[in-house]
């Protein structure tokens, strides 16, 4: 057993975050067939905005938990607005362009946001102030702390909520209809632009929470933290089958666990040749493996992309 349980817990925590970010990719892809590479940057902006608010309030004497909540409550609407504006300004004019054009634009938006963040918050790591009294609990040989428990619970709630929204509500029905055939959905009275904006806004709200969770988990934020995280979450979305919500959730958690197991056992397995710093390689190898045997992803429908 030794480190197995501990790695499983760590994997579940980082996997929950990947899943939340992956949902943002998959939601947008489902409707627009666009990989929104700027999504990782929204996670970063969520973390940065939250930390700025928290920084301003640190000496206010308010209770720590309240300050953290206020940070998050400011980050969510800011990210929603940013997500909305990105779609409105960068992607909407390219709605009928060949699919490569919006993809390159997405990479451009990502670079712009990253540099903007660097100009605003600098190149230094920003640390999460010790506002919360973190509790540690032991489960046999492993430990889990209150922040990790919080992350898993909040992620589960958000995933359940989103699943309900998309699969059980009228709005969700309209979102799925638009994803399948925007023209016909329009004839039913659905304004596709509204649905697309909403998709970006919902994905960005999730990203803001994910940004906060990453910062709480690792205690730091950095202007380029969105890049690797975004790439991992995208991997998770593809692993589960992009465009499929349950796929993104499953892929995220699976990727987190695989990565964490890789980090834990890679050294022992290779007799010290590869250390835990190879965990990213491990994650991407898994992706390549899955794509060879099931190109549509683990929960994706065979047959690939609709025309």
């Amino acid at each position: 057993m030794d480190i197995f349980l501990q790695q499983l817990i760590n994997g579940l925590v980082s996997g929950s975050i990947y899943a939340i970010v992956a949902l943002g990719y998959t939601l947008v892809y489902g409707i627009l067939r666009l990989i929104n590479f700027a999504h990782g940057e929204i996670v970063m902006l969520g973390a940065m905005i939250a930390l700025s608010v928290i920084g301003l309030l640190t000496d206010s004497g308010l209770p720590g938990l309240l300050i953290v909540s206020l940070g998050l409550l400011c980050a969510i609407p800011c990210c929603m607005l940013i997500g909305y504006l990105i779609e409105r300004i960068a992607y909407r004019p390219l709605r009928h362009a060949p699919s490569l054009t919006p993809l390159i634009t997405a990479i451009g938006v990502s670079i712009v946001l990253q540099n903007l963040a660097m100009m605003i918050w600098g190149k230094e790591f920003i640390s999460f102030p010790p506002l919360i009294d973190v509790q540690y609990f032991s489960i046999s040989e492993a430990t889990i702390n209150s922040v990790q428990i919080f992350i898993v619970i909040v992620s589960t709630l958000m995933m359940t909520g989103l699943n309900y929204l998309v699969n059980k509500t009228k709005l969700g029905n309209a979102m799925r209809a638009t994803a399948q055939n925007a023209e016909v959905a329009g004839l039913m009275g659905v304004n596709a632009n509204t649905i697309i904006s909403l998709t970006f806004v919902i994905g960005s709200a999730l990203a803001a929470v994910a940004g906060m969770m990453v910062t709480m988990n690792y205690n730091v934020a950095h202007y380029d933290m969105g890049f690797m995280l975004g790439l991992k979450a995208f991997t998770a979305a593809v692993l589960g089958g992009i465009g499929n919500l349950r796929g993104a959730m499953f892929g995220g958690i699976l990727l987190g666990i695989i990565e964490s197991m890789g980090a834990g056992y890679l050294g022992t397995l290779t007799n010290g040749m590869f250390g835990s710093n190879y965990q990213d390689v491990f994650a991407f190898f898994t992706l390549i493996g899955v794509l060879i045997f099931k190109p549509s992803g683990l929960l994706g429908k065979a047959g690939g992309e609709r025309p």
């Binding site: 009228k170 029905n173 309209a174 799925r176 209809a177 399948q180 055939n181 016909v184 959905a185 039913m188 659905v190």
Partner: peptide, 12 residues
């Protein structure tokens, strides 16, 4: 909408 259920189609 082929992935949605029959009833969801009607409700659309």
């Amino acid at each position: 909408f082929s992935d949605s259920s029959v009833e969801e189609n009607l409700l659309m």
